[in-house]
Design a protein around this nucleic acid. Structure first.
Lengths: 210, 210
DNA sequence: GTCTATAGCTGGATAGAC
DNA sequence: GTCTATCCAGCTATAGAC
């Protein structure tokens, strides 16, 4: 349970603060991310939050950027792999980042600086997806008039995101059937999933929480 | 702008408090919903919040239930109309409830009582959708083995929710094309949309915000 | 039902010692 | 860089007058 995050073991207080903030945000929501609580969790003094990030908004933005950078690299790896469609599908299914993403979206709802940050990142992310996948899909012989790459990205992302949200409430009606349908479609275009190392990607079948 | 909410004009302080809480939640996020701010907005004293709802959690739950009850009735009306599939699609597209829903999901992330409330409501909602739509779709000759009603509900909901979230960040890559594809499919099953009175349902084509 | 007043707490942020 | 100490604003919740 201790080797779960990316920067654990990093010696600097800055990283420790970001780790602590992320954990708090996932487990108790953004409102629980206060300077004092973050600092306590990171075993440093709360004044350091303002030393490193100036304001609480600064902390949130730094946290978001760290995660976004990380996600972007993983996206590029997925999209340039032998099976980009499978890679994409598994990437957007990442359960471990879902709660954090939802928190940031809610936070962005009323903090302008964070909204701006997420909007920029989303466009960059989407552009990378679209560029790569549209040529991949054309290569698979898919008619871009009938099935634009942008729509496929949007549909897959929507399905995935919606199931992740529902899972958090222990609702999973239709999830398994839908995953089967989607994965059959992917397989018909790209062949069956060939697993290649690829780290901690979990299988997609709704293990019950708690 | 004044006839926007359901209970405007209701004389009791309780309703005024709920109206104020909803407005604050949508516009500034759940963290802005404090007893004092709600009371000020409702032009009553903050002690009344605790008189009517006991705790802040109680206020949130009452607010959620009021909205859920309302949505459930509108869902039933949509599902028992002449064009249930169109009704369903337009209902889940409701822009005006999207921000509130997202906020409640984030709130549920760390408030157990609210999580329980949303989970129960979601299941009830989904059950109603599934019961009606599965017979409707069978009536349209759709093979329930290939296209289970539960999957269709999930896919439509996911697409819709995802687009609403993206819209909030001014991202709309692929939205128009995807809406076209979805609505062509619906039309092929249920015929073109025949509009019948039906209140303030907006058209579905991403009017730019601000 | 609605108010005033207030207890008791936690928050963001800063000054200044080390 | 890291800490102690502190200011002051805003919070939930309650007691009790009207």
């Amino acid at each position: 349970m201790a080797a779960r995050r990316g920067n654990v073991g990093d010696p600097t207080a800055r990283s420790a603060l970001l780790d602590a903030a992320q954990e708090l945000m996932v487990e108790e929501g953004y409102a629980a991310v206060t300077a004092r609580r973050v600092a306590t969790k990171a075993h440093v003094n709360s004044a350091l939050v303002f030393y490193y990030f100036e304001t609480m908004d600064g902390l949130f933005i730094a946290l978001f950027q760290r995660g976004a950078e990380n996600s972007f690299e993983r996206l590029q790896a997925a999209l340039t792999s032998k099976q980009p469609l499978w890679g994409f599908w598994e990437m957007i299914h990442d359960r471990s980042r879902s709660a954090l993403t939802m928190e940031f979206i809610a936070l962005a709802n009323h903090r302008k600086s964070i909204r701006k940050e997420i909007a920029e990142y989303s466009r960059r992310f989407r552009r990378a997806q679209l560029e790569t996948l549209s040529s991949v899909l054309a290569g698979y012989g898919l008619d871009p008039e009938r099935w634009p790459a942008a729509s496929i990205i949007l549909v897959l992302s929507g399905i995935s995101r919606f199931m992740l949200i529902e899972e958090a409430f222990d609702v999973d009606v239709g999830h398994a059937e839908t995953i089967t349908i989607v994965e059959e479609q992917i397989a018909s275009l790209e062949g069956g999933r060939r697993r290649i190392g690829g780290g901690p990607t979990k299988s997609v079948g709704s293990p019950r929480r708690k």
